[in-house]
Structures are given as C-alpha cells and as structure tokens.
Design a protein around this nucleic acid. Structure first.
Lengths: 265, 265
DNA sequence: CAGTGGTCTAGACCACACT
DNA sequence: GTGTGGTCTAGACCACTGC
C-alpha cells in the first residue's frame, strides 16, 4: 500500500505532475491511518448510523485484511475524537447527540452551583425561523457562496424560568430543507440530535470565538436584561465528518448566574 | 499484582480494614496504569526534569519488568495528557513551558487577524508583587488554609503597545519563597517557565471559568479603557502533577482586537 | 551505523454484557 | 457459554535522528 517506487532511472520521463511538487512529506501513511479513513468513509456514507454498533474488531480486521491490533488503533483514534464510543463487552458504537447522558455536548455554560441537575432542564423558545440569502460574512464562515439560501433560527434558552441564552443559527438551506419552527418546537431533546436523526447530519466538532459585549435594545428585550449588562458573545462553527462546516451559531450568554467552563491541558 | 482473594470462609475473620470499605470497584487496575503511576512518581520526585529525556522504552520495560508494549501504552497516555513529549528517533521528553514553540500554552487569546506572529511578542509590566494572607475564597481555591501566606502579583500584558490583559495572580507563599517583582521582570520567557525552572513547579493542567464583566475605575486605568467597555473575566486555577492547585489567576481580557478561542469535540 | 520511537502481527488471556 | 472489547506479550520490521 505504500510503494515508494517511481525511480527516474527508466527511459521514459516520469509524469511531471508526480515529480513536480517534490513530496516534502514522502506521503507515508501508516496502515491504521488508512483503515481509519476507510471507517470514516463508512460513517460518512451512512453505512453505520449514529447510535448503532459497527462490526466487531475481528470482523473489521477480516474485512480490511489486517490484524485486529491495527483495526484497534484506528478505532482508538476515532474514539478519542468522539466519533465512536467503545463499550466493553458490547461493541463499538457510532457517537450520537441523542440518548446521551450529557444533554448539551457543546454547551460549556454551567450554573454557579456547578450542579447541572439543580436547575432542571432548559426551557426553549423558538423566536424566529426563516429562509434568507447568505450575507458575505455568513457565507464565508459556512464555506458556501454569498446569496445561497440559508435557514436562520433565533431562540432563547431559559434556566429556572430565567432567560439566559439568546442564539442565532444559520444552516445551509439545501441540507436542512424542510426544517421549520414547528418541527423545532415539536422535537424533544437537543437540536443536534434532531439534525442527526432527521437530516443525517451528525455534528462532530466545533470551534468557538468568545468575546465580551454589551447587548442592543432588541437583544435586551429577549433576554430581559439591560443594555448595561455585559454578555458573553460566543460564535460557534460546528462541523460534520471531514471538517465540513454545517452550522454557524452566534450566542449571547448571561453570566451573572452561570459561567463558561473550559479546561486546558 | 491483582489477587482478589479474601474469602470469608476461613475460620479467622478477615482484616476489618480490608473488608469494611466493600470495594465497589474491585480495584482492578491494568498493568500499564500501574506503570503510568510509577512514571508519574519519577516525574514528581524530580528524577526526570522538564526538557530532559526519560529512559528509552526498552530501558523502562527492563526496569519495570514488563514488555515494551505495556510501557508504550503508559507513555502514550502521559503524552496525550501533555506530561511527556515523544520525538521519533530521539526519545521521550518531559514536557516544559520553556523552549516551547507556542509561547503561552494556557493563553487562548488570539488577535483578530488570527496570526500570532503579526503582533510580535507581548510587552509585560509587573504592576505589583507582594506577600499577603490568603482570604477565605482564595484559600479555598488554592486548597490551603485561610490566612496562610500567599504571593500576590498584578501585571499587564500589552500587544503592539496596546494594554490588553490585566492579571492578578496568587501563589502559595511557601512554595514560591523568594519570588520578587525584580525576578519576574528580569526573567525572559513565559511565567510558567520561570515557575518550572526556578521553583520546580511545572504546571500541567488548568481550569478556567469565564464571564463577561465591566471593569472598575482602577482596572480601567491600568488597561487604558472605559468603564463602559465589557471585558472577559477569566478565572484560572493551574495544577501541577497529581492535580495539586498551585496558582490562582484572575484575568481581564480586552476583546475588541482579540478573541478567546476554544475548540470542542 | 546504532539507537530511538512507530508500526504491524499473532496469539493468549482477562473483564464485561447478554442470553 | 459466547462474543465483545481490554490487556499483555514477543518478535519483526520501518522511519527518523545523529554520530
């Protein structure tokens, strides 16, 4: 699978396209990386869906004609990236946002008490949901073309009846065709679980940019706060498999009774 | 190393200390975990110091009487926790805050340009450095007793001559005996590198709580900003080996030209 | 060239879950 | 019991570094 070959000794000149961009990285890729890519393709193609089990390590080893240890290392990496979940004695499962004990996998906001349970489940209110054309900045962040159709959602999350988060979301219109405010309201559970089960788009990774801001009048009204209360501005881009951006989310977090938690290592 | 034993069938009652705290987790610990603990002890004891190489995998395997694979798995975990750094062909090194390409390992603030180099190195100004008695809240966060001596440091970081970060630090007085403003000013390089080389305290992990706040008059003066400019409030607790808290840091970040970056997965 | 970490294999056995 | 992932071993070979 990794023949270097291509000696320039043969009479016929080698293909320029191959010779020209002298491989600074000699394109060596270990077997388990190649297996990892194959597994990723099966995930992406939908052969194995979220919350279902993938074949056993032995089966995969037979399928790919490698040893169990090599499959194991590939799965280890995918598990450490939270794409797969290993369960001893049962099997290896495709990660999911549904049926997950932690309700909001990408939400780092915690109550001051530190106890997530104490405040109970969040109340969610869909304020708005409409189709618009992507502005230049939003198109750029979603890696689509300006003017393409995007779904724009605005919602408010409340904890213990206290409005705490105001979020605006932008989703590629074609992928999320048929998503309406009604469906969002009807669905119980995390929004990312809905994306996954209804639209086949599992969010796998996200990147956030955080700033401190003061809200405008409209934002104040929705969060029932004042223009003098500083808020966390959290811009998130969420990605599916292969680092394809699938959601842009701009949130405002009230941090008088909650805080954003992060761990560094 | 993991005999379960202790049947209650024998005539003599078993040692109460062993029986009493009925092991809910049967205290099974894989070999590589035990090796990991041994390696950690050598790191903690200073047998292997930051930026030096630890013995080769083969040597460690011989020392602990296990196979190379088992040592490898232990090292793999320590490397993934950033306690060790593997360098192919050279050896495995103890992680360090000095000689590191990224200057500030725990600082997540980036310029809007995204290019760290563009703004050049930060200018650092030590505003204050004095010994005080730990207040109740600071003592609690540092896991020491109220009233114990702590070193309190205040400094300002500027990027491109623009004050951007105001930080207050608290350090356990006994561990950091002899640390003065002069030494802080004299030292070139990250503060955590100084802690590591001069006081033998390598910071290994940190946890942050982030909020949005408005600064008071004094803070405004130091950051040359207004009381109407919202700031990120970042409370960080930094830990050495074995999750021992060694520093409390409260920072105020200006986010008009910079943002706090976080990635979720 | 020798020494180090990195990959790959094959086989044995253990811990866990389900039936 | 059977099947799954988890651990451990031993040995071979590859890729990288520096002498």
């Amino acid at each position: 699978m990794n023949t270097a070959a291509d000696s320039a000794l043969s009479g016929v000149p080698a293909d320029p396209a191959v010779v020209a961009p002298a491989p600074l990285t000699p394109a060596f890729s270990p077997l388990y990386q190649q297996i990892k890519t194959l597994i990723l393709q099966s995930l992406q193609s939908g052969e194995w869906k979220p919350s279902t089990a993938i074949p056993s390590e032995m089966d995969l080893a037979a399928r790919y004609k490698v040893s169990q240890g090599t499959v194991r290392k590939a799965i280890d990496e995918l598990a450490s990236e939270n794409l797969l979940v290993r369960r001893q004695g049962k099997g290896t499962y495709v990660a999911t946002h549904a049926e997950q004990h932690v309700q909001y996998r990408f939400l780092r906001l915690l109550p001051d008490s530190g106890d997530l349970q104490s405040e109970g489940p969040a109340q969610r209110e869909i304020v708005d949901c409409k189709r618009v054309r992507a502005s230049a900045d939003i198109a750029k962040l979603l890696s689509i073309r300006q003017g393409e159709s995007v779904l724009q959602v605005r919602r408010v999350l409340s904890f213990a009846s206290r409005p705490t988060i105001l979020e605006d979301l932008w989703l590629p219109g074609t992928t999320f065709k048929g998503l309406t405010a009604e469906r969002l309201r009807a669905y119980q559970g995390p929004m990312y679980a809905l994306f996954e089960t209804e639209f086949g788009v599992p969010m796998v990774r996200a990147a956030e940019k955080i700033r401190a801001v003061l809200p405008d009048e409209e934002q104040c009204a929705l969060l029932k706060t004042s223009t003098q209360t500083p808020l966390l501005s959290v811009e998130r881009i969420a990605y599916t498999y292969n680092d394809v951006a699938m959601e842009l989310r701009r949130g405002l977090y009230l941090t008088d009774t909650h805080f954003y938690q992060n761990s560094l290592n």
